[in-house]
């Protein structure tokens, strides 16, 4: 039983990474009907940006006389990384996707894939091949709750993710911009006619997605301090699966699917040899999609790749 709860805690943490990345996918897919295959690498860039910001801030804190508490540094890192990565997202949208707005969607997907490769290579060229060590910002404290070990980091990660998801949900539901986004998701062609600037909404969508990816990157760095330029690939594709599993453009769906993917992976590894993890996880997803072709919260729609 303790093993079960221990895994539950781990799965929550693991799932929050997937969920945060899947949200970015889901936003872009929902609003613009695009597969942003660069998103996994945007997550990786976010992790590196937080690494740089965190290292700089710790160095600054060490140089100064006043001791800044670790959690303040962490908070600053997350906010800075989110903002910087949002800019990265906007640039990607501007350079890679906007020229292809009228092109077949598959072409945009390919562009995304290529931007991803450029990001990987770029980071590799700038940061070098050796893995980056994320500075430990907060002291790890382990609580023993009836045999289940919970670290303060895990609690923090899950909490921060949930707060971000709720904030996103509120943003999309309550604000003017969020409403414009939903309108655009509903009918892409009509919205520009209503006086909603499509380009701004597209940029905003990318910015939000990338910001969330950066937060995931930062939290990932806190939990698993070793970063490498290719870490975004597997994460990205898995989060992509989660985003589709959640249903087109559904925030709740992407979140749940992200957590579900985390749960499946952790629990499969618990029962079966860990090498079977992908096999079983994806078989389950295949089964789910066979019976719920439009994901958890997606509505049937007959959109096809515009060729």
């Amino acid at each position: 039983m303790t093993v079960f709860f221990q895994s539950l805690v781990n799965a929550l943490q693991w799932g929050s990474f997937y969920a945060l990345i899947a949200l970015g996918y889901s936003m872009v897919y929902g609003v613009l009907m695009l597969f942003n295959f660069a998103h996994g690498d945007v997550f990786m860039v976010g992790a590196y940006i937080s690494f740089i910001v965190a290292t700089a801030l710790t160095a600054l804190a060490a140089a100064g006389t006043i001791a800044i508490p670790g959690w303040v540094v962490l908070l600053l890192t997350i906010v800075c990384a989110m903002m910087l990565n949002a800019i990265v997202g906007i640039i990607i949208e501007r350079v890679g996707y906007r020229p292809l707005r009228e092109a077949p969607r598959a072409s945009a997907a390919i562009t995304g894939l290529m931007i991803g490769i450029i990001l990987e290579t770029g980071v590799l060229a700038i940061m070098g091949a050796q893995r980056a060590k994320f500075p430990s910002l907060i002291q790890s404290v382990t609580y023993d709750v009836g045999g289940v070990f919970i670290t303060n980091k895990k609690i923090m990660i899950v909490l921060v993710s949930i707060v971000l998801m709720l904030a996103l949900d509120q943003f999309v539901k309550k604000t003017k911009w969020g409403m414009a986004m939903r309108a655009m998701a509903f009918d892409y062609t009509v919205v520009p006619l209503m006086g909603v600037p499509a380009n701004v909404i597209a940029a905003l969508t990318f910015a939000i997605g990338s910001g969330l990816a950066a937060s995931a990157g930062c939290l990932f760095g806190v939990a698993y301090p070793v970063l490498d330029p290719y870490m975004g690939i597997v994460f990205g594709w898995k989060a992509f699966v989660a985003a589709i599993l959640g249903g087109r453009g559904s925030i709740l769906g992407a979140t749940l699917a992200g957590f579900l993917l985390g749960f499946i992976e952790i629990f499969v590894a618990l029962i079966f040899p860990s090498t079977m993890r992908d096999f079983i996880a994806y078989s389950i997803i295949l089964l789910i999609l066979t019976f719920r072709p439009h994901g958890f919260f997606g509505e049937p729609h007959s959109a096809r790749l515009r060729l």
């Binding site: 594709w237 699966v241 040899p273 992908d278 096999f279 994806y282 295949l286 999609l289 439009h294 729609h301």
Partner: peptide, 27 residues
Amino acid sequence: PSFRTRGDYLAIISLAFMFIVKSLIEN
């Protein structure tokens, strides 16, 4: 399963399939 419906469904199913095959061979 995938040709019963339309849309971006095949993309994701086929991606999952690719992971399954790779993982199956690894095991």
